[in-house]
Design a protein around this nucleic acid. Structure first.
Length: 506
RNA sequence: GCCGCGUUCGUCUAGUCGGCCUAGGACGCAAGGUUUUCAUCCUUGAAAUCAGGGGUUCGAAUCCCCUACGCGGUACCA
């Protein structure tokens, strides 16, 4: 295969959705697999939907995800500029070229008049289309005389340029995932290519850019499949060779049907965006994978498997492994429901593979925010104690807070079950045993404590759980003597006293 | 409405050219074990009559047709 050139072309209308991230990822995987080029192009032809900060967000998101572009708005390249608003001047000539070759025409109908036609059709449960059937009864250069058209243009009347579909032609879209999709031109509408504000629409700009940037493969979401016949015809009209198409299945909401949306994330409690996003207009904040404590590699891995599968049973893999295994033929045809539980599982797996040093570094930052100072050695110790219990980096604190501060409260269920009238004296006896241990050795302390419990014919589970309650506040957490070792006997004694007084009061 | 795409355990999926599929794996779920706690981890299990109905064939999840359902599109948005 010749080295492919692919592109990811988002429009800067808000934060990048994980569906978009997956589309970009598949483009990236495909390009890397075949030694090709991966390009980031910003499609901002709709000035009314422009959102400040969105472009920077997109760039930052890919940086965090470690998905690198070879060419693009932020890195430049030989086919720049990579932002459509900056290429504005070049589109008109292509629209004119189509006008001259008879593949397009001027249309002067106002948005309002078309709106009325649409409403009227809707009332009859029909659909109004600007197409082969209707264009001869509308106001355009096909129905108006040549002088009339030039007069309107000379008078600066607003106009759009529409594509003129040939009559009754079967158009074949050759899709790498779906095979041949055939659509008759009579069912297609004459899409606007050039808007009255002097900007091209997506359709024109997209084709012109893909051609001038030598794009070989267009890998994009399934929502573009309906307009693919238009694109195929556009290439034909220009006399250009069309790139190969691959329309990706959609990412669906976890419950029910339909496209995954920000709403679903809010409702079910999982991020839909890679990074946290602050909407400049509404001030609304959307949670991000990064801020939730996801490992970028885990996000990439999880996303890759939503709609693609190498077929070898392997699920956890590096991006290099994915690249080696990737093929468009193995992409599924049907939409994939997003599963927050599996996303969590992936993150857990990646956290376990991460070095303790790296996790300690992340945790040290969390501690700094809480003004807690601990030695590197002790932080590393904490990591070794809680690592296997965490799904997100933010869980480290949740799982280890009791190592830094006494329990805020004591689990009443456990107290009710295990705390007896003689518990205080038993705990004090254990405190005494621990204090005698000098230097403190957790194995030895453990053995002596167990021996003491047995010698006094006491219930092991009852005593140990009460001790745990006194130190941790709940019946959970790592090995008790590891905790005692970390806390130090003095702190342990203090906590036992504290627990006895507080629990006695309640 | 019209056009297009899709349909294997609850979910993500394996299933190349029909037989090795009494449909495999993973997540989740359940039970047991480990941990005198909880989580992790390990083992086992339940879970898809391969959307439904017709064909073709000795034989179909795999090929053909129909139906149903779901989704996407139907803008001077991308």
């Amino acid at each position: 295969m010749i080295k492919p050139r692919v592109r990811f072309a988002p429009s800067p209308t808000g934060p990048l959705h994980i569906g978009g991230v997956r589309t970009a990822l598949y483009n990236y995987l495909f390009a890397k697999k075949h030694g090709g080029t991966f390009i980031l192009r910003i499609e901002d032809t709709d000035q009314t939907r422009f959102v400040p900060g969105a472009e920077a967000y997109i760039v930052e998101a890919f940086k965090w995800l470690n998905i690198e572009f070879d060419e693009g708005v932020h890195v430049g390249g030989a086919c720049g500029p990579y932002k459509q608003s900056e290429r504005k001047a070049m589109y008109k000539q292509y629209a004119v070229q189509l006008l001259e070759s008879g593949w397009a025409y001027y249309a002067f109908d106002s948005a309002e008049s078309l709106d009325m036609l649409r409403k009227a059709a809707e009332a009859e449960k029909k659909n109004f289309q600007y197409d082969v059937h209707s264009r001869l009864s509308l106001c355009n250069s096909l129905t108006l005389g040549a002088e009339e058209v030039s007069a309107k243009l000379a008078a600066d009347e607003p106009y759009v340029i529409r594509f003129k579909f040939p009559e009754n032609r079967d158009i074949t879209v050759r899709d790498l995932i779906r095979g041949d999709v055939i659509v008759n031109s009579n069912t297609l509408d004459d899409k606007v290519l050039y808007k009255s504000d002097g900007m091209p629409t997506y359709h024109l700009a997209n084709i012109v850019d893909d051609h001038t940037m030598d794009i070989t493969h267009v890998i994009r979401g399934e929502e573009w499949l309906p307009s693919a016949p238009l694109h195929v015809m556009l290439y034909h009209a220009f006399g250009w060779e069309a790139p190969q198409f691959a329309h990706l299945p959609l990412l669906l909401k976890p419950d029910g049907n339909g496209k995954l949306s920000k709403r679903d994330g809010d409702r079910l409690g999982f991020p839909v965006f890679p990074l946290e996003w602050h909407d400049p207009k509404s001030g609304e904040v959307s949670v991000g994978y990064r801020e939730t404590g996801y490992v970028p590699q885990a996000v990439v891995n999880m996303l890759a498997l939503l709609g693609w599968n190498p077929g070898n049973g392997q699920e956890v893999m590096t991006i290099e492994e994915m690249t080696a295994l990737f093929s468009i033929e193995k992409i599924n045809k049907s939409g994939a429901k997003f599963d927050p539980e599996k996303a969590k599982w992936f993150n857990h797996k990646y956290l376990q593979m991460m070095s303790n040093e790296l996790l300690a570094h992340a945790f040290a930052m969390q501690l700094a925010e809480k003004n807690i100072n601990e030695s590197e050695e002790r932080i590393l110790k904490v990591i070794s104690l809680v690592k296997e219990r965490i799904n997100f980096t933010k869980d480290i604190w949740e799982q280890s807070a009791f190592l830094f501060e006494p329990p805020q409260q004591y689990d009443e269920q456990v107290i009710k079950k295990r705390w007896k009238s003689d518990t205080p004296e038993h705990l004090q006896a254990i405190a005494a045993i621990l204090t005698e241990e000098k230097p403190f050795c957790k194995e030895h302390a453990h053995n002596r404590t167990v021996a003491w419990i047995q010698d006094n014919a006491l219930n092991m589970g009852q005593i140990m759980n009460c001790l745990r309650i006194a130190l941790v506040g709940a019946a959970k957490g790592p090995d008790l003597f590891e905790i005692i070792d970390f806390l130090g006997v003095e702190e342990v004694t203090r906590r036992i006293k504290r627990a006895i007084s507080i629990i006695a009061l309640s």
